[in-house]
Amino acid sequence: MSKENRYQEYDTWAWLYNQTMGPEYSKSQLQPIETLLLPKIAKNTKVLDVCCGTGHLVQLLSEKGYQMTGLDGSEAMLTYASKNAPQAQFILDDARTFELPPIFDAVFSTSASLNHIMSIDELKQVFERVYAALKENGLFLFDLNHPNQMTKWWTGGIAEGEITSNYAWAIASRYYPQDNTGYFKVILFQAPTNQTNPLKLPKLLLYKLLNLRILTRLRLKVLARFSQWEKNWQSSEITYHVKGYPHAEVESALIAAGFSDIELRTLEGDNTIDENHSVYFICHKAKKCH
Rank of each mutant, 00 (worst) to 15 (best):
N5M: 09
R6E: 05
T12H: 08
A14V: 14
Y17E: 13
G22A: 10
Y25A: 13
P39G: 04
P39C: 02
P39R: 00
A42V: 11
N44V: 15
D49N: 09
C52L: 04
L57T: 13
V58C: 12
Q59G: 09
Q59T: 13
L60F: 02
L61C: 11
L61Y: 04
S62T: 15
S62E: 11
E63H: 00
K64E: 10
Y66N: 05
D72M: 03
M77F: 09
M77I: 11
T79D: 04
K83V: 10
K83R: 03
A85W: 00
A88H: 03
Q89C: 13
F90K: 07
E99H: 14
L100H: 05
P102Q: 03
I103Y: 05
F104M: 05
S111P: 04
A112H: 11
S113A: 15
S113Q: 03
I117V: 15
M118Q: 14
F127K: 05
E128Y: 01
V130F: 01
G138M: 03
L139S: 04
L139D: 02
L141K: 02
D143P: 10
D143A: 07
N148G: 12
Q149N: 07
M150K: 04
T151D: 11
T151R: 03
W154Q: 07
G156E: 08
G156R: 08
G156C: 09
G157N: 15
E160C: 07
T164H: 13
T164L: 14
S165V: 09
S173K: 03
R174S: 15
Y175Q: 09
Y175D: 10
Y176I: 11
D179W: 04
D179T: 09
N180R: 03
T181D: 01
T181M: 07
G182E: 02
I187T: 12
L188Y: 01
A191F: 03
T193A: 03
T193W: 00
N194A: 08
Q195Y: 03
T196P: 06
N197H: 11
P198M: 07
L199T: 05
L201N: 02
P202L: 01
L204E: 12
L206D: 14
N211A: 03
N211L: 09
N211Y: 01
L212A: 08
L218Q: 10
R219Q: 09
L220E: 02
A224G: 11
W229M: 15
W229A: 15
K231V: 15
S235R: 08
S235C: 10
I238N: 14
Y240L: 13
H241P: 04
V242M: 12
Y245H: 03
P246G: 10
H247S: 14
H247K: 14
S252A: 15
A257E: 07
F259H: 06
F259I: 12
S260W: 01
I262K: 02
E263M: 12
E268P: 09
E268A: 15
E268G: 11
G269S: 09
D270F: 02
D270N: 08
E275V: 13
E275N: 06
I282V: 12
H284N: 10
K287M: 14
K287E: 13
H290M: 06
